[in-house]
Design a protein around this nucleic acid. Structure first.
Lengths: 344, 344
DNA sequence: CTGAAAGCGCTTACAG
DNA sequence: CTGAAAGCGCTTACAG
């Protein structure tokens, strides 16, 4: 158990440039120049200053530097994604794009609450972030934040304002890639079990899938997408229905990895060989959902980290004075595993 | 596709208190007092200043305020938890504890790389965070950051230095609670399939489980914990072994929800009724892993949000001059579902 | 090569 | 009640 401590043992305040200068016997201006590698500082002087700084563990106060520089080297990541499914890979991509340690990221979770979002926004602007990345919890368009004193990039969920810069996964293409993969592995009678039809992600993936089928002169088995919910349970229920009504089905394209898990379970229970008789595919390539499946699940990876890196790049460009506008879609990729290809 | 824009349409710089004062026709000092609710400002003056501030969307520069106040109202969350499994609930608990918007959080992912951690640490100290929360990726002790100019609270993974303040989930008690629940629902022949024995979490949970059994005059079926890996696959393999070697087993306590999923699958395949013949329990209560299981999985919730809130409270106390020391364990709770109790 | 001075945006005693 | 002055920690012309 932690025990309370006396508050009197007060923590030493952080060292200041003035402390360094005093210790090195130079002026604050000279100390500044010495530490920042400016010209016209005598080597001996520089060494004395650097040693003094090290001795007292001097770390320059970024706040003071920022106030002079007019930029803070911070960005705000405003998310509504409680699971961190999107925002964490995006954060990671962003850290990479900014260059490790160059930029620090404030992470704020608005919890899908507009009031809380405004609150965080106000705080971030007060802290003079150089820019903002806004991460939605799905790919449906979200209200723009409007005109702000700093650039904004919308990631995952696009802004409603086409003048804003938005980076979203290409769900239409994801659907196309999925069907192309199934066709390439010899499938012709493909069913599509997806999630909640109110999600753009579900409709976009279906649109891409249908387009790819049409290009091959085919259509979905049963003639329609079976929309439902983003759950294993729906995956199981719909798979039963598909198998009962479409005996010739040779592939089930599932709108998410969770739905695909449900499909795999039912196929296994009914003794149907995967991928021998029926192939199964998911979307998202969510490692934790996929790692245990039998057989390992083929899935479309939406490349969240790349998306995050791209969003960060756009933000850096915008901060540098070259903003972009409109919605940019990011390519995705099929990760082939045993549920669609023997020996994969 | 976003199109590049001319960099000349430069963004208007953020309004400053000087702008407000000019617009309201008062001095900067008076404007400051008016906006901060200080006494001795004429009501008319205050109104003029407030109106001016609103008109130009003035947001005070927190950097300047921080430099004077000596505290920034920011904390750093230094994590090694790539999945966000722990750090996001902890972040959320921390946001709550700090009071929404009072405190902004820098999230830095060190990716289990000591160099990167030092880099982020340096940046955070430069930004003069008021304190740090360090989140580990497991409950094994991690090296202390040593003495820093700001207070530090270690969450999930305790620090190796007992003088530091660490908040960890009580895995021993979790094991005890799990077994007590199984005993209370009439189980006597309990097997324990767990993850990698090198993890303190695995050993602690097992220790708690064995203690609870001993208190009831019992021991584990087979006399030992079956350690392996934190995977569904291991859950399946170990469950087969348990069923083959211990025909009378009436409960399988699994070291994680993933292991438990594997156990449930095998029991189902072998036609064994859950929970009629054999109960199954997991640890972590990871919603996304659990939501699809049949029957729904009983699991021990480690209360990460509470842990995060507690860590944040300790940090706030330490910032306020009342630091705590030592390792504090947080209670967990059993969430009962159908895998151990009919009709739950 | 070094340092005094000005200044970033703000707040807080202190005169008036 | 109001405002000029000092100052937080730093950097950058500008004199010397």
């Amino acid at each position: 158990m932690p025990a309370g401590d006396d508050a009197t043992a007060s923590r030493p305040r952080a060292a200041t440039l003035r402390d360094v200068a005093l210790l090195a016997g130079v002026s604050v201006a000279t100390a500044s120049k010495a530490l920042n590698g400016r010209d016209n500082v005598h080597p001996d002087t520089r060494r004395r200053v650097v040693e003094a700084a090290e001795r007292i563990s001097f770390t320059p106060n970024s706040l003071a530097q920022a106030i002079l520089a007019g930029s803070t080297g911070t960005v705000g990541l405003l998310t509504n994604d409680l699971e961190g499914r999107f925002s964490l890979p995006i954060l990671m991509g962003a850290e990479d794009a900014f260059g490790a340690g160059q930029m620090s990221v404030f992470l704020c979770d608005a919890r899908d609450d507009a009031i809380r979002e405004q609150y965080h926004l106000k705080a971030l602007l007060g802290r003079r972030v150089d820019g903002l990345i806004v991460v939605g919890s799905n790919t449906d368009p979200r209200p723009t934040l409007g005109t702000l004193p700093v650039p904004v990039v919308y990631a995952y969920a696009p802004s409603t304002d086409p003048q804003d810069c938005s980076i979203v996964p290409d769900n239409v293409h994801a659907g196309t890639l999925a069907v192309e993969h199934l066709l390439a592995t010899g499938r012709r009678r493909i069913a599509h079990v997806s999630g909640d039809v109110r999600y753009a992600a579900a409709r976009d993936r279906a649109a891409g899938a249908k387009a790819a089928l049409a290009a091959a002169g085919l259509e979905l088995v049963g003639g329609q997408v079976r929309y439902g919910s983003w759950s294993e349970e729906w995956g199981r229920a719909a798979t039963h229905t598909v198998l009962d009504h479409e005996p010739g089905v040779d592939a089930i394209l599932c709108g998410s990895d969770q739905i695909a898990r449900g499909a795999l379970d039912v196929l296994r229970e009914r003794g149907i060989d995967v991928p021998g008789a029926v192939s199964v595919m998911g979307f998202d390539n969510w490692e934790v959902m996929i790692s245990g499946t039998r057989p390992p699940l083929t899935s479309v990876d939406m490349n969240f980290e790349t998306l995050g890196r791209r969003a960060a790049q756009h933000l850096v460009d915008a901060i540098g004075g070259s903003p972009a506008h409109g919605v940019e879609t990011m390519p995705c990729r099929v990760v082939v595993r045993g549920s669609t290809a023997r020996g994969a």
